[in-house]
Simulated scan of single mutants.
Amino acid sequence: MDKLSVMHAFRRIVERGSFARAADDLGVSPALLSREIKLLEESLGCTLIARTTRSMSLTDAGRIYYDEANAVLEAVRGVETRIREGAGAVQGHLRVNAASSFAQMVIAPSLPEFLSAYPDLRLTLSLDERVVDMVEGGFDLSIRIRPAMADSALVARKIGIIRQRIFSSRGYLERAGTPQTPDDIPAHDIIGFALATHLTSWTLHRTNGDTAEEPHTIELDPHVRVGNSLILRDLLIAGHGIGTLPDFVANEAEARGDLVRVLPDYELPSPEVFAVTASRLGMDAKVSAFLEHLRPHLQA
């Protein structure tokens, strides 16, 4: 028995003063309505409506049930109204998880403007290089950089793309020599991103010239492995070797001349930026607002 549905039917019977009129309003037969009320009375162990062939009246128990059912139904309606109204409002608590280097370089600079635009919003930004359990962690949104997202119960939307290139410092290249071909790379000191899928194997493809050339794969054994792209960048700037960096980490250092491109005609496959949510019912207003604010800072 659907108690809320029966409560609604009972209230309509009382307010209309007739099983037939209530049944007509609800689009069901009077016989079905009568059976529903009979089952309700049996479950409660008392009579709610005293009825004859010509009239009906509430018993004392029926009047109590009507008052309480009316309060319950109004409370449910109020909750549903607040949820519907709130679904379009940028408010509440937004919980976001992202890779630490991406959060520091891309998300963090945009946060002051975002928070000023939505003063009623609370924000928790959690940084983690590894993929987390969104449901267990209670996150509304996870920003992940991956070559592809595996099929799962989560919903992943592509929101950007990252260029992955090879960098070093001028000082290191002057000391150790500048690689001229991909096959020169393994002879150098390699600094690797410990969590990357390309830690020990770089598949390089040309970005200009003969783009039809087959990708070139080289096997590596990095002498230094770190789990944070910002640390990797700083080690490269300090002249400790050659490594790959995403554009959002390397751009400023390259513009200043602290880093230079190695094999500038080559780069690794471009990973994508995914916005991952747990629900297939669509993003709520606060998640949508956050992603819209972030989008101009991404390379689509």
Score class of each variant (00 low, 15 high):
residue 148 A to Y: 15
residue 48 L to K: 02
residue 32 L to F: 12
residue 265 D to G: 14
residue 8 H to M: 07
residue 297 H to R: 12
residue 215 P to T: 04
residue 146 R to H: 08
residue 133 D to V: 08
residue 93 H to M: 07
residue 254 E to G: 00
residue 82 R to T: 15
residue 47 T to E: 05
residue 267 E to I: 05
residue 274 F to V: 09
residue 180 Q to A: 15
residue 83 I to P: 04
residue 111 L to E: 10
residue 86 G to E: 03
residue 213 E to V: 02
residue 93 H to K: 07
residue 254 E to P: 01
residue 258 D to H: 13
residue 198 H to E: 13
residue 14 V to D: 08
residue 154 L to C: 10
residue 146 R to I: 03
residue 74 E to V: 11
residue 106 V to P: 02
residue 33 L to Y: 10
residue 161 I to D: 10
residue 89 A to W: 09
residue 164 Q to P: 00
residue 299 Q to R: 14
residue 184 D to F: 06
residue 217 T to R: 00
residue 219 E to L: 14
residue 205 H to W: 09
residue 230 L to F: 13
residue 262 V to M: 08
residue 166 I to W: 11
residue 69 A to H: 02
residue 47 T to Y: 08
residue 111 L to Y: 14
residue 98 A to H: 11
residue 212 A to K: 11
residue 188 H to V: 13
residue 57 S to C: 01
residue 166 I to A: 02
residue 147 P to M: 09
residue 190 I to Q: 01
residue 248 F to N: 00
residue 51 R to L: 10
residue 227 G to I: 08
residue 88 G to L: 12
residue 70 N to Q: 09
residue 123 L to K: 03
residue 84 R to A: 12
residue 83 I to H: 03
residue 112 P to V: 10
residue 165 R to A: 11
residue 36 E to K: 01
residue 157 R to L: 13
residue 91 Q to D: 07
residue 70 N to W: 08
residue 121 L to P: 04
residue 108 A to I: 09
residue 114 F to D: 14
residue 104 Q to T: 13
residue 53 T to I: 04
residue 109 P to W: 07
residue 88 G to K: 09
residue 72 V to K: 04
residue 22 A to V: 05
residue 86 G to A: 07
residue 4 L to N: 04
residue 108 A to M: 13
residue 48 L to Y: 01
residue 172 Y to E: 05
residue 25 D to S: 08
residue 92 G to H: 13
residue 137 G to N: 11
residue 163 R to P: 05
residue 129 E to I: 12
residue 272 E to P: 01
residue 61 A to T: 08
residue 282 G to D: 05
residue 109 P to T: 01
residue 105 M to Y: 00
residue 164 Q to K: 02
